[in-house]
């Protein structure tokens, strides 16, 4: 079980699905950002799993995983800053009330 690539990949798919659901369903902008983090982590898990089970990818996969983490950190920084900026204008963290672009 722990010795097969599939089990990690399926685990990753399930985590990704959970993140997707959170992104689609939550009203809170920060909860949406958390869901994005979950999805990124799911992808990272699959990358690391590939690196572990396929010898040819061993080093590269680890590096890519690190890169993803760095990008995720940047994304989180900017994303949260945007949320705070919007919140300052609209006084709500709820995404479905951000409808200024619609008018």
């Amino acid at each position: 079980m722990s010795g097969s690539l599939q089990s990690y990949l399926i685990l990753s798919a399930l985590l990704f699905a959970i993140g997707t659901f959170g992104f689609l369903a939550r009203r809170n902008a920060i909860a949406m950002l958390m869901s994005i983090e979950l999805m990124l982590n799911a992808v990272n898990l699959s990358i690391v799993a590939f690196g572990a089970f396929i010898p040819a990818l061993r080093g590269d996969a680890a590096i890519i995983a690190l890169m993803v983490m760095a990008v995720a950190a940047a994304e989180a920084t900017v994303g949260l800053a945007i949320v705070i900026a919007i919140y300052r204008n609209s006084r709500t963290p709820l995404v479905d009330e951000y409808d200024r672009m619609r008018q």
Binding site: F23, L24, A25, M32, V95, D96, Y98, R102
Partner: peptide, 14 residues
């Protein structure tokens, strides 16, 4: 359909 809400679009993408 063009609600201007990100999540509607994201649902569309999904």
């Amino acid at each position: 359909i063009q609600t201007g809400r990100v999540q509607n679009y994201a649902l569309g993408i999904a």
